[in-house]
Amino acid sequence: MFRQVLLTELLKLRRSQITWISWLAISIMPLVCGLFMWIVREPERAAQLGLLGQKAQFTGATADWPGYFAMLLQTVGIGGMILVSVIAAYVYGREYADGTAKNLFALPVQRHWFAVAKLIVVLIWFGSLIVSLLVEGFIVGALLKLPGFSVALAANAIGDILLSALVAWLLVSVVAWIAALGRGYLAPLGFTIFMLVLGMVVGATGWGKWFPWSIVPLFAGVAGPRVETLAPGSLAVLALAFVAGVIAVICQMRYADNTQ
């Protein structure tokens, strides 16, 4: 039965507008990073064109593959985290906002399968978006003819971006719970923005590695100096947040009143 639930969830996602919106959003990221690289490499021409020459200089970025990969990682660290949360808010929240949750809850399917299938669908779609970002990122980097490429560097960057995306996905179980609890999109979106800001603030203190929403920004190098490897404590906190979110969303769907 889980296979059928998964197929129906994939069909719903395939037909929804969030797929194209999220793909468009992720497609812009390498283009922006590429533009930034070009500005850093050719600040005079960029300034002549009225682009952000001065600001780009201040970032300390270098116009090469290591600098470009670092920028992509930062983009995924913040943009990816927002995007995956928006996707999760949509996938879970729409059932309540559209009034279709009630159509799912009196069927010969255990309700927890819906919670799990949606989580997997978010993973599949977000994973596809990250792969798309990587492919596009390499194309943009190649077109810019950036120096300093090596296979080892690329493999390392791919690993970091995938890990960063995976960690961002781990946090969506909590977003899913908030969507089920708040019965719509607004609560999870508000929660995401709040946690992102809080994550940046906590990340700037010494406690960031213990706070789930600081871990991705720290790993991506957005909230202070980059933490290149995730400490076992951070991994444990992430695992705990994920499991707590999954249990909470399952309990919400299984036991809470649905008064739609």
Binding site: L7, T8, L11, K12, R15, D98, T100, N103, P108, Q260
Partner: peptide, 19 residues
């Protein structure tokens, strides 16, 4: 209520799979 982006047939297909 039903899924507005899905056709009538697709909405029923979801129900068929789940029942």
């Amino acid at each position: 209520t039903s899924y507005p982006n899905l056709t009538v047939r697709e909405n029923l297909d979801i129900q068929r799979r789940l029942t």
